[in-house]
């Protein structure tokens, strides 16, 4: 039996094949052990829309390889904060740092190139392409073959194999040859995470990955997020509404209320924090 089915020039040096598929990806990441600048840091980040301050002087530190969730009542400014970090919005004042470098002035595409990958609340995939192809295109954009027209696309076997490995990570491998539009909503969210992983970002911004999902589908997503976290090579920022999910998966939790940071601590400390209880319960009592 042949060792490899590839018949094209190799793109990436072979990495050892281990049972831990996540290993595959770590070869992209430049690990800097020299300085320990946080993966993401915001300093006095503020944005105003007219007279309304959506995010008010939020200073947060996102440690490398940690998972920090951002929670808060509706309208607390969670998604706005995400938009500021990924570059969709420009802050009125304050700075955003990626690995200690100021990225406040950069557009979203440049931040993507620097390693900030973000998912959106609304599903965004290639509907008529196959599930595998969706992920393969993400991988292709990372290697420098986008301008090649003289090789067959299937000759880049590593890209396909890697895409399949990513599908395994999000438990979608059985569906690899189907058109993405035939997937259920939950499966499409998983596919989106796989596409995101294909971009191999050092920082993952997940904006409500379980939005619109049925209860049965939630544990699978939780498992995927935990797997990504266990690989210990990505910093994860998570916005979620499902409180029990956040408690299990987070290293730290930041709580926003009306654009202001009211607490940033471990899950236990946050759940015992009086201000947080007031923000949630107090709000609930007031309106209920």
């Amino acid at each position: 039996m042949k060792e490899s089915v590839g018949w094209a020039p190799s793109l990436i040096p072979d990495s050892p094949r281990t049972t831990d598929q996540i290993e595959f990806h770590s070869i992209y990441i430049k690990k800097s052990t020299m300085d320990k600048a946080p993966a993401i840091e915001t300093r006095d980040l503020t944005i105003r829309f007219g007279g309304n301050i959506a995010v008010n002087e939020v200073s947060l530190v996102f440690e490398e390889y940690h998972l920090k969730s951002i929670i808060g009542p509706n309208g607390a400014g969670k998604t706005t904060l995400f938009n500021l970090i990924s570059g969709q919005y420009k802050p009125t004042s304050g700075r955003v740092y990626l690995n200690g470098e100021d990225v406040t002035g950069l557009d979203p595409a440049s931040r993507t190139k620097l390693g900030i990958g973000r998912s959106f609340q609304l599903t965004n995939i290639f509907p008529t392409l196959t599930v595998l192809e969706n992920v393969r295109l993400a991988l292709q954009s990372k290697v420098d073959v986008g301008m090649v027209f003289w090789h067959h696309w299937r000759s880049y076997t590593e890209l396909e194999d890697r895409a399949y490995d990513l599908l395994k990570q999000v438990l979608l491998e059985d569906r690899w040859r189907y058109a993405a539009s035939t997937l259920t909503h939950g499966e499409q969210r998983k596919l989106e995470i796989a596409i995101l992983l294909g971009l191999d970002p050092a920082v993952l911004l997940l904006d409500e990955p379980t939005a619109g999902m049925s209860i049965e589908e939630v544990p699978a997503i939780l498992e995927i997020i935990q797997d990504i976290k266990a690989a210990h090579n990505r910093t994860i920022l998570l916005v979620e509404h499902k409180f029990d999910m956040i408690m299990t998966v987070s290293d730290t939790i930041a709580v926003l209320k009306e654009g202001q940071l009211i607490c940033d601590d471990t899950p236990e400390a946050v759940s015992n924090n009086e201000k947080v209880q007031a923000a949630y319960l107090g709000g609930g009592v007031k309106h209920g």
Partner: peptide
């Protein structure tokens, strides 16, 4: 034929499918 079956052709196909997503992937 080779052109449309190359990595370039695949990207063209993806642009036709969902241009916004394609841009978000860095193309």
């Amino acid at each position: 034929l080779r052109f449309v079956r190359s990595p370039v052709g695949r990207v063209l196909k993806s642009i036709r499918d969902n241009e916004q997503r394609s841009t978000a992937l860095g193309y």
